[in-house]
Each structure stands twice: as C-alpha cells, then as structure tokens.
Design a protein around this nucleic acid. Structure first.
Length: 797
DNA sequence: ATCTCCCGCCATATG
DNA sequence: CATATGGCGGGAGAT
C-alpha cells in the first residue's frame, strides 16, 4: 500500500507552509481533474482496463476519479503480478485511499481569490463511493478547517492554508484541556489496571475524568475561517469533527508526538461522558479513530506506528505533520485589527446562523445549571463556573467565525503567514488581544459563557507588558493557572486520589516506548532524569509495590472517594458544557480593555481575563498538568515539596520544548504575574515569598500551592534550579505532576492588576473561578488532605 | 485471535 | 415529506 500511496501522494507535498513556500495557486474545478498526476492516470487506465470495468460497473467515463484505483491495480499487477483482483479488495476501498483520491482533486493551496467548491454529488459519483464515506472524509477535513460546509451538498475547499492556524489553535486548546495529564492518568491506570474496578474507576473517573469534563468537547473554530454560512452552524454534535480535533490535540500536546489509539479513545470517551466505560463504546470509539486516522494519514499529518508497553505493542500514530509552534497567543490577533471585525463576529448580521448552535447552548445551559448546584455549596459559585471550562464557552464564541468570512479569510491568511513568520523568527510581543468574549453574552447564558469564551483557547491573553513573553508556554500555563487557581482550593474538598495520579505520571512516561524509532524530539531525556530525581515512590515503585499501593490507596481512597464522590458530584460543576465550539477569539482580542469593561457584566469573565493575562505571561508553569501538578505538588510539596517538583517528571518532557522556546522569549515579570502572585498570597495559597515562576529569570519556584489552607512552609524548594531552570524549571513544574502548582510568579507588585482580579469577580471569592479547573482543583484540595499519608506509605513501600 | 475498518441501517437535521 | 448528514456497530478482510 505504501507504494501505491506514494504514487498517489506524489502530487501533494508534505506540509508546506506558506512561509517557506509560496502557495501554489492552482485550483481545480471539481469536475475536471487536471492534477499533476493526470498523465499517470491515463497510463494507468490504459493499463488496467479490466480492473476498472469490474470494479465499477456503473462508473461512467469519468476519468479523474478512477485513476487512483486503477493505479493501484496496476501496481499490483506490476508488483504482485497476476491477479487483477477482480474486486477491489478491501484495501482498495479504504477510507485512506478514498481520501487520497479526494484530495487529489483539489490543490493544497488554492488561490485565495478563487474558491473552489466541492459538490458532494459530483465527488461521490466520480469517486464511486457512497456518500457516507465522503462525509467521513469531509468531516475530518472540516475539523482542520480545510473545508467548510456551505450548504447542502456544498463545501468550500480551503486547502491547507488554514492548517497552521488550526493546529495552533488545537494545540492551545489541548493544553488547556490538560490532555497531558489525562494521558498520564490513563496510562497509570493501565498498569494498575485490573484490580478493583469499581472503586478505582470511580475514583479515576471522578478525579481524572471529572476534570476531563472540563474540557468537554467543543469544536474549535478559526477566526478567519468561514463557517458555513447558513446551514450548518448549529447542528448536532459533530462528534466526528470534534473527535478529530481532539485526536489531533493529543498529538500536539504530547511530547513524543505519539498517541496510542487506546489512550486516545479513553480520553475521548472520558470527555464526552464520564459515565460509560462500556466496552462496546470503546470499540466504537476505536473504529472512529481509525476512520479519522486514515484521513489524517492521507493528509500526511500522522503515521501509524506501534508503541510497546509493558504488555505488548499497541497501535498508535505518530504526528508527522508540521510542527506547531508553541502557542502563543498572538498571532492572529495582530493582524486582526479590528474591533470592527470582532464586533462583526460577535454580532453577525446573520444572527440566526450564528446562534445555530443552540443545541450546544442548551447543553451549556444544562451544564451551567449543574454547576450552579454544585456551586451553591461553594462560596463563589458563579465564578467558578466561568473559570472552569475554558473551552466550553466557546460556544458562544464560535459564532464569530462565521462573520466576516471574506474579510477574515484574507486577513486571516495573511495573518497566519505573518504569524508564522513572526513566531518563527522571534518572540514578538504580541499584543494580545483579549478575548472578546462577552459579546456573546447576548445569549441567555450570557455571563457565564462569555467569560468562558474569553477563555477560549485561542486567545491568549497576555500581557500587555511589553516584554516579550515567552511566547508559547505561557498560554498553557496560563490556562492552567487560571483554571485552577486557588479558587478551588478554597473549597474544602475531600481528598482525592491524588496518590494514584502522581505515581502514574512517572510510570507512564517510562512505559511508553516508541517502536517507530523516530526520534521523538526531546522527549526521553526529561523523563529519565526526572525519574531519578523523582520521589521515590513514583519511580522506584515496582509493579508489585504499585499494587500494594493501589490496594492501600484504594482502601483509603474508597473512603475518601465516597466522600469525594458526594462532593464531586457537586464539584463537577466545574465541568461545563458539553459541546460547544471553541472559537478563537483572536481577532477580537485587541481591545481587551474595552471589552473588559463590557464584560463587567460577567464579573467572572473579567476576572478570568485578568488572571489569564497576567499569569499567563509568564509565571505559570504548566499547563496541562495543572491538576495534578498543582494538587499533588501541593500536598507533597508541602512537606517535601521541593524535591518533588523537580521530580515531577511528566511535566518536563512535555514542556521542555516549549520551555525552551519560552526561555528565549522569557517573559519579564509581568504585572500580571505579579498580580497573580499577589492574589495567591493574598488568598493564602501561596506563602508569602513564593511565587510563580514565570520567568526563568525570576524564580520559578514552584509554588506550592500550599494548598490552600495548609501552611506550607516549603515554598522554596526548587529555587536551586533557578538558574537552570529557566526552561527546565518551568517544564518541571508544569510537567511534573505536581509540581507546580500554578505558580504564580513572584510577586511583583502589580497593583493595578491585582485590583482587577479581586474586583472582578468579587474579590477574593473570585478565586473559585480559578478552581474552574474543577477537577484539578478539587482534587488538589483533596489531595492535600489525604495524599500525604498515602504517599508516605507508598514511598515506604 | 487480533487489528482494521467497510458497509450501510437508521436516527437526525435540514430544507 | 424528501433529502442530506452522520452516529453507530456488525461483522468480515487483513495480519
């Protein structure tokens, strides 16, 4: 198949990004195939007439579509020799092949000026496939914004122009969703696997997944990309699209960019619904993932590989697409100027379409309601909600994209290019726009959503401060920080299963091995070192030990869980809306402040923003891990902290890259960060001295979040690394499980900022918002209580 | 036996 | 109501 595919592929080049290569402007009318391979096609046809005839009886004279098939046939003949396979043989009907054919019809980089349209009827006819299959392909392409649904039977082909942006956005969202952590948890479970199902399950589910909920699904939109005008906005869930995006996110956030189907399926399931664990569901998910993987493979974004774990090798895929720069916020924003656009986006005349998503909205509402319940208990309920799920909100946001298509497109593209360039070259200071979330508020949900929206992945808030900030890392961190922030901590939660988590991380890392052998960029290193350093328990544990731990933990946990579960149910509030789209706010960003004012309504939002921006800038350490990180560290750290943070391995690997990048950029201490610190201190989360590490320069001390309540004296722990740290530290913090709590950087005094924080949401109370992470936070808190014990035990073991 | 994943029924969404 | 979409899972080909 490889051979065949190659041939087919020849036409398309691997990722060329606009930057380097000027896009080729060709476009092809759907009907006529021109394609570079046309010659080949002809040859093929000539060669294998028989085959064709057999294959398709109905097919007419269409030349274009058949080519591929014929080609394959030929090859086989050539290679294998004789039998012309009379019938296509399953492979020939594979989605991957079909996708190649489909892609062959359109240029990778269609000229912007002309839009090429895709007519499903034509395609199905020409490719001789059932419509259903085309939907599979198109849905995945849509998730990458390579096409947009215009109307019935009509799609617009964008090609790979949007790919860089899309990937960026997806990466960002992935970071926000803490996928890294989730992956770790899952792996951890694996080893633990079998034993006690229920209790564990619950625990895990609750803890890990619960958190996962936060992420919920949402479709990530691109600003510039057009949304299908009318028809499609709302619609049902689009699970395939969402799944596809999430799947891609997993690659983008994991350090070795390899994701096993099993893990991906579990994560996707977890997000959608906490509850079912069904095996059948799992199988279905796997099937879908194969479908998606086939399309992504055709796009050359991923490649199949196998990972060997303790048990055996498992199917997995490796990212082979373009590298995504570490996130930054800025890119699109810059280009996008205008408020105008934003406004448009927000309030598109079309209106209806925009709001199409009601379904999602509805969900949102539900989730909100739930949250409220939960929140009730909590002091600052409202805030939390908003905070909790960044992504979710997007629903509202999502609408934006629809607007200004044309304008945006052009701009967006340009912007992209610019971004790319900029990003590559240097860390610019990006002006970040702020998310404009609020506008969306119009909807009933209004406030909450809006705030959320702000959260939306895309946007990175960021600091006004001029210093370049670390470009990428921060965002994630920021998210993290934001997310969990202290707020939750405040809440008293029962202990969670923290223990398990931490151990997991380390293990997980170890386990994974890539057979493929490709290099995985940096990954390994971090792991080992970390491991060594890590606390004993994690690494040192042998499997047997683990078991012991587990059992112990379980017992303990069970108790805890029970409590927790109760609480959790409440807590979950943080989770959010199930489906929504994430829209990148990017364009909107510019006017942060202004927006803010608007936002005010939603107090929360404002808070969040502020929080984000500041923290993001530099301080915070890790994104993904947050939950764990924060939590765990806190606990552990409290007593031990120092050691741990560094140890936390996981973080390191992941972040490392980003860190590096960031380092260059480094952020200066931002006001925001300072503010953040301030807040934290205020709240008591952080000890006075500590702070968020944001910049290498500053200290990264992992703050222990001290957990909320607990006193922890530790704080300083890591300082040592300080120097080195720049990158590393951050990484560690982030990656490691616990390491870092969000670290708020140190204190600088950003008075102004601080004020905002407090005020917005309601002052200190707002904190809860941070907790939004929900799970993480909660857990953390829980962790604080319980964990220590366990850990001790474990370590002893 | 396991991995892949095609096929197409049938529920929904859209017009 | 007719179609367009697309969730979903049986079950068969590929290994």
């Amino acid at each position: 198949q490889a051979a065949t595919s190659q041939l087919v592929l020849t036409e398309r080049q691997p990722d060329c990004q606009p930057l380097t290569t000027p896009p080729k402007p060709k476009e092809t009318p759907p009907a006529d195939p021109w394609t570079p391979t046309s010659n080949l096609k002809m040859l093929i046809r000539a060669a294998s007439p028989e085959i064709r005839s057999r294959e398709q009886r109905r097919q007419l004279s269409d030349s274009s579509s058949e080519v591929l098939q014929t080609k394959h046939c030929l090859q086989e003949h050539l290679l294998g020799d004789e039998y012309e396979k009379s019938q296509p043989s399953r492979k020939e009907k594979s989605l991957g092949l079909l996708c190649h054919k489909f892609l062959a019809r359109y240029p990778d980089y269609p000229s912007p000026s002309q839009k090429s349209y895709i007519c499903l009827d034509e395609v199905t006819e020409e490719l001789h496939v059932e419509r259903r299959r085309i939907y599979d392909i198109v849905n995945v392409l849509e998730s990458l914004h390579m096409v947009s649904h215009l109307a019935r039977n009509r799609y617009i082909w964008h090609g790979r122009h949007n790919l860089p942006q899309t990937l960026q956005a997806l990466k960002k969202v992935g970071e926000e969703n803490k996928y890294i952590q989730q992956i770790q948890m899952i792996k951890k479970r694996e080893y633990e696997h079998e034993f006690d199902a229920d209790s564990e399950r619950n625990e895990e589910m609750a803890s890990s997944f619960g958190s996962s909920e936060q992420s919920e699904m949402s479709f990530v939109e691109l600003p510039g990309v057009e949304f299908r005008a009318a028809s499609v906005n709302g619609r049902k869930y689009k699970s395939l699209r969402v799944m596809s995006q999430k799947f891609v996110m997993l690659f983008l956030v994991s350090t070795p960019q390899i994701v096993s189907l099993e893990v991906a399926a579990k994560i996707l399931i977890g997000e959608d619904q906490l509850e079912d664990l069904d095996k059948s569901k799992f199988k279905t998910k796997i099937r879908r993932l194969y479908d998606i993987a086939n399309v992504l493979s055709s796009l050359k974004l991923i490649e199949k590989v196998h990972v060997t774990e303790e048990r055996g090798r498992k199917p997995a895929f490796k990212w082979t697409g373009p590298k995504v720069l570490p996130n930054t916020q800025g890119r699109s924003l810059k280009s996008i100027p205008s408020k105008e656009q934003c406004s448009k986006a927000l309030f598109p005349s079309k209106g209806k379409q925009n709001f199409t998503r009601h379904s999602s909205l509805i969900k949102l509402v539900k989730s909100i309601e739930n949250d409220r319940r939960k929140i009730q208990s909590a002091p600052t309920s409202p805030v939390k909600i908003s905070a909790s799920s960044l992504p979710v909100f997007p629903n509202t946001i999502s609408q934006f994209p629809a607007i200004t298509k044309h304008q945006l497109e052009g701009q967006s593209k340009k912007a992209e290019e610019i971004q790319m360039k900029g990003a590559l070259s240097s860390p610019e200071v990006v002006p970040k726009a702020e998310p404009s979330q609020q506008p969306a508020l119009s909807q009933p949900l209004g406030v909450c959503p809006a705030s959320h929206s702000s959260v939306s992945p895309v946007i990175l808030p960021h600091p006004q401060s001029g210093v370049s900030y670390a470009i990428y890392l921060h965002p994630s961190q920021a998210h993290t920080v934001t997310t969990y922030s202290p707020g939750f901590m405040l809440q008293p939660l029962p202990c969670a299963n923290v223990t398990g988590i931490k151990s997991n991380n380390s293990k997980v890392l170890n386990k994974i091995t890539t057979e493929g052998g490709d290099a995985q960029r940096a990954t390994d290193e971090p792991t080992k070192p970390l491991a060594a350093e890590e606390r004993p328990d994690t690494k040192s544990e042998t499997s047997s030990q683990r078991c012991l731990k587990r059992s112990q933990a379980l017992q303990e946990n069970n108790l805890i869980k029970r409590r927790k579960s109760d609480e959790e149910s409440l807590d979950t509030s943080s989770t959010f809306f199930p489906s929504g789209y994430l829209i990148p706010l990017t364009h909107c960003t510019h006017g942060n402040k202004a927006e803010c004012s608007n936002k005010e309504k939603a107090g929360v939002c404002s808070l969040q923003h502020t929080a984000y921006s500041s923290p993001i800038t530099g301080v915070i350490p890790m994104p993904a891990s947050e939950l764990k990180t924060v939590n765990i560290p806190a606990f552990h750290i409290t007593p031990l902290n120092i050691m741990l943070s560094p140890t936390s391995i996981a973080a390191a690997p992941v972040l490392s890259n980003s860190c590096l990048n960031s380092s260059s950029t480094t952020s200066a201490p931002n006001p925001s960060s300072s503010a953040l610190n301030f807040m934290l201190q205020h709240i008591g989360l952080i000890p006075a001295g500590v702070q968020v590490p944001a910049n290498p320069v500053l200290q990264h001390v992992p703050v222990s979040s001290q957990s909320e309540n607990i006193s922890h004296s530790s704080g300083s722990t890591n300082v040592q690394e300080g120097k080195v740290s720049k990158n590393t530290l951050q990484l560690d913090c982030a990656g490691l499980s616990g390491n870092t709590p969000s670290a708020p950087k140190e204190p600088q005094e950003p008075q102004a900022v601080t004020e905002n924080f407090f005020r917005t949401p309601g002052g200190p109370n707002t904190e809860p918002s941070l907790s939004a992470n929900s799970d993480g936070t909660q857990r953390i808190s829980q962790g604080t209580l319980c964990i220590p014990q366990r850990k001790l035990e474990v370590s002893e073991d």
